[in-house]
């Protein structure tokens, strides 16, 4: 997956995520966004899957019923050129979905001092590549993640009559706080989305740490050739080990 240099802007309505692959699409996005902000007639309830027939319970539990056509593109095959890695399948996320992914990814992994945010290292492109891939696991993840994206927009419309990316930061975090924890006492209506959001979170984290900046951030310092014998642990690492051994009552 080729990455371009990150820009330094945080993703928001005025500064949409620009994918490496859909630069032209992003221009379209600007139009969509300005239109959606004006649009009061979003069909909020008609798209929702009611868990009970009682309309008042809709807020308590909903889950989108997505009908996704299977990905029919070809994979990279059993003998891809590995020296110049490429994923040949077309990306499938819409501009709106990419934008939502970018905003969510930056909530999960925000900019932190000099360390860029998830969208700044093109994590949304990796998510798009992942959910668009013609392989079984990725197609399952696609269903989970697209359902989660839809749920989040549905929930946003229910609470504030607008899609997630158009909400205020405060409104966004109210939703995220409800779905970002899978615990024994997670309210029933948030269990399914919390689970789906976990899958999304793992993918965002992995994609972030796989970027050069993320790899540096987690501290991985391998993948460099060493001249001569492998030096083994540093003195500092050995000192720590000996403390651990002492604490555990062990010895080398």
């Amino acid at each position: 997956m080729k990455r371009i240099k990150p820009n330094n802007k945080q993703i928001n309505q005025n500064s949409p995520y620009v994918s490496t692959l859909t630069r032209r699409e992003s221009l379209k996005w600007l139009g969509v966004l300005s239109a959606s902000a004006l649009l009061p007639s979003f069909t909020v309830f008609s798209e929702l899957q009611k868990t009970q027939s009682d309309a008042s319970s809709v807020v308590k539990g909903h889950w989108p019923k997505l009908k996704l056509s299977p990905i029919s593109a070809k994979g990279y095959g059993t003998d891809p050129a590995m020296v110049i890695p490429k994923s040949p399948w077309p990306r499938t996320l819409t501009t709106e979905q990419i934008m939502l992914v970018a905003v969510l990814a930056d909530i999960l992994v925000p900019r932190d001092g000099y360390v860029p945010s998830a969208s700044q290292v093109k994590v949304p492109d990796v998510i798009d590549e992942w959910v668009s891939a013609p392989y079984e696991k990725q197609q399952r993840d696609r269903f989970t993640i697209l359902s989660a994206l839809r749920w989040i927009d549905d929930e946003s419309k229910l609470r504030s009559s607008n899609i997630f990316v158009a909400l205020s930061t405060k409104q966004q975090f109210e939703i995220i706080d409800d779905i970002a924890y899978e615990k024994a006492d997670t309210p029933k209506q948030f269990r399914q989305i919390s689970h789906a959001f976990s899958a999304f979170r793992r993918l965002v984290l992995a994609a972030f740490f796989c970027s050069p900046e993320g790899t540096k951030d987690i501290g991985y310092i391998g993948n460099i050739p060493i001249n001569g014998d492998y030096p083994g642990p540093t003195d500092k690492a050995m000192l720590h080990l000996h403390q651990v051994l002492d604490d555990l009552g062990l010895s080398l």
Partner: peptide, 21 residues
């Protein structure tokens, strides 16, 4: 033909296993 220093981040799907590989 060996991708010696290519990182997982450069690979399709972060190098994850698929039925092709």
């Amino acid at each position: 033909e060996t991708p010696m220093f290519q990182t997982k981040g450069q690979a399709p799907l972060m190098g994850a296993s698929t039925k092709d590989k």
